[in-house]
Design a binder for these strands. Structure first.
Lengths: 195, 195
DNA sequence: GAGTAAGCGGAACGTTGTCCCGTTTGACGA
DNA sequence: TCGTCAAACGGGACAACGTTCCGCTTACTC
């Protein structure tokens, strides 16, 4: 946001053109490498794909988390915005919740290794945790509250816990035909239901 | 098994005493380090704890998976053997299933990082996957079959898929007071129940 | 007690993340 | 148009780690 200049006081000179260009190139390269080799691909590979030095990546994205966030920001935003929309357009809050969780699973399951990174307690991914949580937990909480309010589900589960559980279930779902994360997630959602 | 000599033809000379001693020492050291730093602790740390060179570890346990298996074998066996016992002693197969899953979660949740490693699609952990799966999936399948047979749960979920899901849910459960794997697992088990 | 191969320790090598530093280059004022 | 300078750059340097190799040590056998 605030493309090009900062909002604070004396305009600190805007980014140089080559820097802006490099950032674009890097995002494209990272997206491409993430698809090919997962979000834990070596920094050097991404740098090579972009045709820049490794330091350039660190300059634009101090941590891997920052890069991942930048690459997937659009999709996360879309997912967050889908929450209220689904709530408005679905027959019941429970139905909305189910659909929204599916959206979330779609997102995670197609991102090679993202789910795993999202759960890792590795220091250095706090930014990533914080971003996902800040953005999506409130959305999930609203859906959960609505469904609890309408008496469809139990009300003793925190959105945070549910989202972490869903995230966990999506780990390693890409490469194992015998494991379908969606089926397990559906089980959790079913278990949420009140008799 | 077959402590000391091999069963095949000409007795290939038994292991040297110092080698056997080192293996013991290594298992103790690894167990201790696993508790302190998780199952992905640097090989060097384990070697240092045991007071041996790194090559000694590789000689006894060619891959990290082999070491992990050796360290936890007893507990896995106990878990496997608990399956039939619970089935015999519980009121219903469904109750037995629930208790057995709890045992499994207890095991995983206390082993710093084991759950994560168990799911990783990293080459080199096939042995670990194979061991856990070979040993525990059949046990789980029997419990699942029994509960399905008694009409308590749906019958369209493979034991393999359930176990992977449970394993996934246990990832990162140690260090986050806001995330209780057991609660999510209970939700899955509840979702399994037939109306 | 001597011979021998199993076993050992630690140095060496490859890979990866991260940081540093000398060089290049875009932006701006003259 | 051109000179100046800080932003930005590239790639080499360093550290941590997994893994392998090799010369030395030592437990067993006779």
């Amino acid at each position: 946001m605030n493309d090009g200049d900062r909002g604070s006081g004396r305009a600190a000179r805007p980014k140089r053109a080559d820097a802006r260009r490099n950032e674009e190139t890097l995002l494209d390269a990272a997206a491409s490498i993430f698809v090919r080799s997962g979000v834990e691909a070596p920094i050097r590979d991404i740098a090579a794909e972009a045709g820049v030095g490794t330091a350039t990546i660190y300059r634009h994205f101090p941590t891997r988390a920052d890069l991942i966030i930048a690459v997937y920001r659009h999709q996360v935003e879309a997912c967050a915005e889908a929450g209220p929309a689904l709530l408005a357009s679905s027959a019941t809050p429970y139905a909305a919740l189910g659909r929204w969780i599916n959206l979330f699973v779609d997102f995670l399951a197609t991102k090679h290794g993202l789910a795993a990174v999202l759960q890792s307690d590795n220091t250095g991914f706090e930014t990533l945790h914080a971003y996902f949580l800040d953005r999506l937990v409130p959305v999930c909480a609203r859906l959960l509250d609505a469904a609890a309010g309408s008496g469809e589900i139990r009300s003793d589960l925190e959105a945070y816990e549910l989202m972490r559980g869903i995230g966990n279930l999506c780990i390693g779902a890409e490469h194992d035909p015998r494991y379908d994360a969606r089926r397990l997630v559906a089980l959790v959602i079913a278990g949420l239901r009140l008799p």
